[in-house]
Write a protein that binds this DNA or RNA. Structure first.
Lengths: 127, 127
DNA sequence: CAGAATCCTATATGATACTG
DNA sequence: CAGTATCATATAGGATTCTG
């Protein structure tokens, strides 16, 4: 979901907030960052299923939205740490309630055991 | 965002809940339905910007997720009413907090005054 | 380690026209 | 009125490979 302009109407605020945390990963990233500052690799390990590319992309988006702060250390090997900004922290109640609702309705949700999906067949370009 | 299988991990609940209300419109629709049962046209008028097609699609998705109930009256002209299910009502605190957060951070959000976007130029197929 | 680059597919979202 | 049907585009999301 790309950045949108929100008109001043009722419901706008809902849309605006949702815009910050939607997509498949942003909410989950924010949730994990509530445990404190974490390195790229740590975050990644906590989110099996996400690809490196998506984690990078989403983190950059969150950074641009001022929800997350990215700190790069000039070391070898590289170290990059992510943490919530103050604005990001302010979303805690929101994330918490998303989590709470999800938990209390888990039986009703498709939170199945198996991500049993066939890997997408990619057509190999003619070599 | 298509229906996903959620693995049983922390953060799963966040993802699962988000999955029900994400996209550009679902949260807003749920918000508007909190005012009570509404006809298709009413909803549409409350959401300038949404197309008929999207409103239909999102409503059907919400219906499938058991958040919204659709009632069709056998009348002419047709009358279709939408209202929140019990499960949908249970999302009220979630929607409310999304709205509240959005409002209290409105200054920081791109909630600009003008949806000043050029209509997409469509290439007319050769007549 | 933390990514960037490249390629690819599937969905979301829209505009527009048509209809029971 | 409350949709369908069609067509078009943009973005989300992912697989894989390469690199400072």
């Amino acid at each position: 979901m790309k950045r949108r302009n929100f008109a001043r109407r009722p419901g706008c605020s809902v849309e605006a907030t949702l815009d910050l945390i939607d997509g498949k990963w942003k909410g989950v990233i924010l949730y994990h960052l509530q445990s404190g500052t974490q390195r790229f690799g740590e975050l990644r390990r906590r989110m099996p299923g996400i690809t490196q590319r998506m984690l990078t992309k989403q983190l950059r988006a969150l950074e641009e939205d001022k929800l997350v702060i990215r700190k790069v250390y000039a070391e070898v090997p590289p170290r990059v740490e992510y943490c919530l900004s103050e604005l990001g922290e302010s979303l805690k109640p929101v994330i918490d309630i998303l989590k709470a609702w999800g938990e209390s309705h888990q039986r009703l949700l498709p939170c199945g055991p198996a991500p049993e999906v066939e890997p997408v067949k990619r057509r190999k370009r003619a070599a």
